[in-house]
Structure formats: structure tokens, C-alpha cells
Design a protein around this nucleic acid. Structure first.
Lengths: 336, 336
DNA sequence: TTGAAAGCGGTACCAG
DNA sequence: CTGGTACCGCTTTCAA
């Protein structure tokens, strides 16, 4: 059970000073070719690998970024993280993840933990974010970026999407397809994003001179969408509703399930759209027309910005917005 | 921009030696009550938090576990990790994640990276695992556990499922429901788990004295299932196939999609089952009867075992197997 | 009980 | 170019 080799071992085997070993490892200064070879041989022979802990300690640089998120299980999380991770690695940064499940106390613990691990910056991805965690991060004086959909970009450093434009485009599409009696279905929430989305819908309807019909339900899961249909099916028939723009895929899926169960043909009798492009949105039948958000790109951009901040290369005041994409699938139909 | 306080600062403020500070922080030895108070006050006042890097360095214990996985985006990954994470935290272990996307070179890098971060143990969750990574881990002398479905538990330290029993139970259910002409659909693969599953199917059919009909397709995605139907629909009709047991949810979903597109009623004309209990399996209509695997629990058990190994509390030779659960949903029907 | 001091594995400054 | 050495922040003997 040989102990891990250290620079000391390398130094002995190579017959040079420990400083020289450090130099060839880091390439910080000129070292004569023969010594370089000697050291590299020794390293090779011993299978020496620098102890990053020791390195970080003296450098006062951990080359680590922390991510505080709600739950890895949330579908888009993986995409965010992948973006962060890949770009982070490009800049030689490692990622430390901390799941909080939306719990405030855990969030505070997360900050503390990441701080103790000497992370150089933090990315917060949370649906239930609150100011306390932001204060906590500020207190530790760790640079951070918010990556979520719940605060106005004016207030915080954040990277976000054009929620309004996305729903507006989607609604435009319904209108272009000849729909006139369209419902916008959204979940009750105080999200910054929810407001924007609804606004997008209203903008589109206004432009076209159509009546805005907005329904708000509790919960953003499929059963909420299902229940909405169950409770409002009469209204839908009476008002000749031909299209429903839902604020997320789950809600839309609930609508689809209801239609399946009650013999309503989608898209023949009713057109439906979602938001988010969840994995199942293209697996269900009929496949769901929805909005794809470039989570990966957002993650990538975010970490890039954060690293710039760390390097003092840029003062990041303005917030970034990334583009969306309409995924045109089966649930929406031209009325002619 | 005050520098982070260190033990030095605490020591000065509290008017004690640095050793004493360390003692009250770690509770390693008796310290007189008044000094304890003084130190704690100082810590409080300064907002002092130990530098875990320095701590790990001297203790030669990082209290960190590494996870090497293919891709966070894989649905069950999050569940595994959550199990590992929660239990790990209970034992005061932190988790370092490394995604390899199934790439061998990246996997090797992962080991190297985790080693340099001084992780005390590694959990490997991979679909495309190869021996090289195992050799690499062994070379670094880091305790590890395999958490996957591709190797026989005899060969490695691993935690796995009763794949055979699960499919056997599912097949039993079809038989119990009166099905006699049942197809088992599986993807081409050299998985340990694939063999087991198929065996489960064959066991059940043998017991019942029924003919085993196994079809193997390339790929394990929905389109493979769809294509299978497209190519074998004639066979299915001619042989009065009433049930298809698929080796995973994606395949089953592909079958369902084909049925939807071609007017085959599920489960009236055909019963279908999947494996995995993917999120969408209960969202699609008809909802898919499938097998749920307790990923969270496996993660939890795994990390517990690993920690025991680290503490030398147990020599982990035997492999563990956890239970499955049949999720009875709409795609399967009693033939009377 | 308490403090001094020797490291843990590296980096980087300084003199040669 | 090279080697010696102080030090990063903390734990842990060892004596007192």
C-alpha cells in the first residue's frame, strides 16, 4: 500500500531541488532541458500527481465553482449543468454541486459549505430563491450569478430568457393558423417569468385584435391541466375555443390526457401548445408543439460571464437574454 | 474587502493559543470553560469558518466521495445521486461529480481528477463501463463501488437489481391475465442486465409451458420500438400476439406510438409493458405498465457500503440486490 | 489544560 | 537557471 508520491519523492528520484520540480510541473520558469527530462521521468516513474488541495491552499485559488440548485431531478437542470460544466472545464474550473430542494436553511448551508470549500464563484439555480441566500453569498464576498426565472434581471446579476417573446411567437403562430378563440392557461405564481409569458400572449392577441382569455390554475403539474379541462370543458365548447396556449409542458400534457380520455381529437378539435420542450413532449402522442429553451447555452454563457467576473475582465451589469425556438409538432393545426 | 478570518485572527481576539482554538472547534480535548466561551465569541464575532482545504490537507482526509457517471441527463441518474448525496451528507461526506459521456479517455481523466482532489472513495455509474477505468481506480488505490447494470456482481464490487425476477414477475402477470402468445422485445447489448432480463422472461414462459418468442433490435430508443412494430406487424397478426414485454420503457413507448399511428388499440388489441418507470411512462396515454427500480435506495445503500469500506468496518464481498416494483397501469389488459 | 512547534504538499520569492 | 526557505491554514504531538 504505497503512499502517494509527493514532490519530495520526485525531487529525490530526479536529483534536483523541489523548486525545480515545481517549475517543470507548472512551467513557470525556464529549466534546463536535461533537468526537465529527469523530472518528467521521475514523475512518470512514480506516477506522481499533484495534490490539488495543497496547491489550492497555497495559491489561494481553488479553481472551483459552486452551483446551488434545487434538485438535480428537475429536467432542465442537467442541461444547465452540462453547459456550466463543459465550459467550466475549458477554463479549468471544477464544479461543486449542492442540492437544496428549495429549503432555505439548506440553501444557507450550501453557501457555507461552498465557502468552506473555497469556491471562487457561485451560480444559483433555484425556483424558490429568496433574498437571504443572496445576502449570505454577499456576506462571504463570493462572486455569484443567478440563473433562474424568478427575478427581474434589473435587480440581480442574472442570465435569463425572452419568455415574453417566446409565448408571443407561439401565440402568433396560432393566429397565423387561423385560430381566433384562444385561451392562455397559466399556473398561479409570482414568477417574473410567468408575468412575462402572459404578457407575451396578451401582446400577440392585442396586435391581432382578439380577445384575451387567460385562465390561471393552481399547480403546474399535469393534473392541474387535466383539472382545468374538466372544469372548463363547457366554456371551451360554448366559446368555440380552438386553441390553448399553455405556460408549460406539464399543463399542456394534462390537457392532452383529458382529450385522450374524453374523445377530443387533438389537433382536429383542439390545438394545444406547451412550453419547455420536456423530454416527454416529443414522446407523447400526439407530440406536443412547444418552446425549446437553450438551457445548455445559458449554462455555458453563465459560467463564462462568471469567470470573466472572477478575472475582473468585465463588470457584468447588463443581463443576458438567450433565444428560444418553437418546436412545431403535432398538437397544432391550421384552421385553413 | 476583508480577508477571510483564519485561526490566527481567532486566536488573537480570544487571547489564547492557536492550538486551543483548534481544540474548541473540533472538541478534541478538554478546554477550560472560560476559554471555550472566549473562543466561541471570537469565532462568532469574526464570522470565522474553517478552511476545509487546509483541514483536509493535514488530516489527509478530504471527506469527499467521487461519482463518475455518464451523463447527468439520464433520467435515473438524478435519483441515484440524490440517494448517494443524502446519505453521504448524513455521514458528513461531500460529493464530487464527474460526467464522462461514456468516453473512455474522459473516464480516465475523471479518475485522475478525483484522485487529485483526494476523494476517499469512488462510485462509478456507467452504462459503457470498461475495465480500463477499473484498473485506473485500482492503480490509485482508491476504494470504489460499481453501480450499474453491466457486469456480473461476481466480478466486481457492485450494487444491482434483480433484473431477472422483475421481468419474470411481469411476464407472470401477462400469463395470469390470460396471454399466451407473448413476445419479448429487447435491444441488442452485451449487458449483464439484458441477459438477466431475457432469462426472466424465458423462465416465466417455461414455467407456463408457453413458447418463448424473443425479438432483438438495435438501439434502445423509442424509434427502435417503432421500427420493430413496423417490420413485424404481419408476424404479430398472424401469430395472434396479444402481449409484448419490452426490456425498457423507450422501446415500449415506441410500440405505443406505432399503435397510436396505426389505429391499434392498446390494451384492447395489444398489451404492452416496459421497464424502468421513466417519468413519461405515466404521462403518456395509455399510461405504461412497467417496472420501477428503486434507484434512490440503491444510491443510498451504495454510499453506505462504500463508507463502511472506508472505515474498514466491513469487507464488502457479497453484492447487494434491491427490490423492484411492478407499476400496473393502462397498457395491459386481462384477456378474461 | 495549554502553548510551541513540526509538519501536510505545494508555491514563490530570494539570493547565488 | 537553481536551490533554500518561508508560508498557505490547520491539526497534532510533545513538554511544560
Amino acid at each position: 500500500m504505497a503512499r502517494k508520491p509527493t514532490m519530495e519523492d520526485v525531487k529525490n528520484l530526479a536529483g534536483v531541488s523541489i523548486s525545480t520540480v515545481s517549475r517543470v510541473i507548472n512551467g513557470t520558469k525556464k529549466v534546463s532541458p536535461d533537468k526537465v527530462i529527469a523530472v518528467n521521468n521521475a514523475i512518470e516513474k512514480l506516477g506522481y500527481k499533484p495534490n490539488e488541495l495543497a496547491r489550492s491552499l497555497v495559491r489561494k485559488k481553488s479553481n472551483t465553482l459552486g452551483i446551488i440548485l434545487d434538485d438535480l431531478g428537475i429536467e432542465y437542470m442537467a442541461q444547465y449543468i452540462r453547459g456550466i460544466d463543459e465550459i467550466g472545464k475549458m477554463y479549468d474550473y471544477d464544479i461543486l454541486l449542492y442540492s437544496t430542494f428549495g429549503n432555505i436553511d439548506v440553501q444557507k448551508k450550501a453557501v457555507e459549505f461552498l465557502s468552506s470549500k473555497q469556491v471562487e464563484g457561485i451560480i444559483v439555480i433555484s425556483e424558490k430563491i429568496n433574498n437571504e441566500i443572496l445576502y449570505a453569498i454577499k456576506e462571504y464576498e463570493i462572486p455569484y450569478i443567478l440563473l433562474d426565472k424568478f427575478y427581474s434581471p434589473q435587480d440581480y446579476k442574472t442570465v435569463t430568457f425572452d419568455f415574453d417573446k417566446a409565448i408571443e411567437s407561439m401565440t402568433d403562430l396560432f393566429i397565423e393558423y387561423g385560430h381566433e378563440n384562444i385561451i392562455y392557461l397559466t399556473e398561479k405564481s409570482h414568477d417574473y417569468s410567468a408575468d412575462l409569458k402572459q404578457q407575451g400572449f396578451e401582446n400577440a392577441m392585442s396586435k391581432a385584435g382578439l380577445t384575451k382569455q387567460v385562465f390561471t390554475v393552481n399547480g403546474d403539474k399535469t393534473d392541474s391541466g387535466y383539472r382545468f379541462m374538466d372544469e372548463n370543458i363547457k366554456f371551451i365548447h360554448q366559446n368555440h375555443i380552438t386553441g390553448i396556449v399553455a405556460s408549460n409542458d406539464a399543463l399542456a400534457t394534462g390537457i392532452l390526457q383529458y382529450c385522450y380520455d374524453h374523445g377530443i381529437k387533438v389537433p382536429d378539435d383542439l390545438s394545444v401548445s406547451g412550453f419547455g420542450n420536456n423530454k416527454y413532449s416529443e414522446l407523447i402522442r400526439p407530440s406536443l408543439t412547444t418552446v425549446r429553451l437553450p438551457y445548455y447555452d445559458v449554462g455555458a454563457v453563465t459560467v463564462r460571464v462568471l469567470i470573466k467576473i472572477l478575472r475582473d475582465e468585465e463588470d457584468f451589469n447588463e443581463s443576458l437574454r438567450l433565444n428560444y425556438e418553437i418546436m412545431l409538432r403535432e398538437t397544432i393545426k391550421k384552421l385553413k
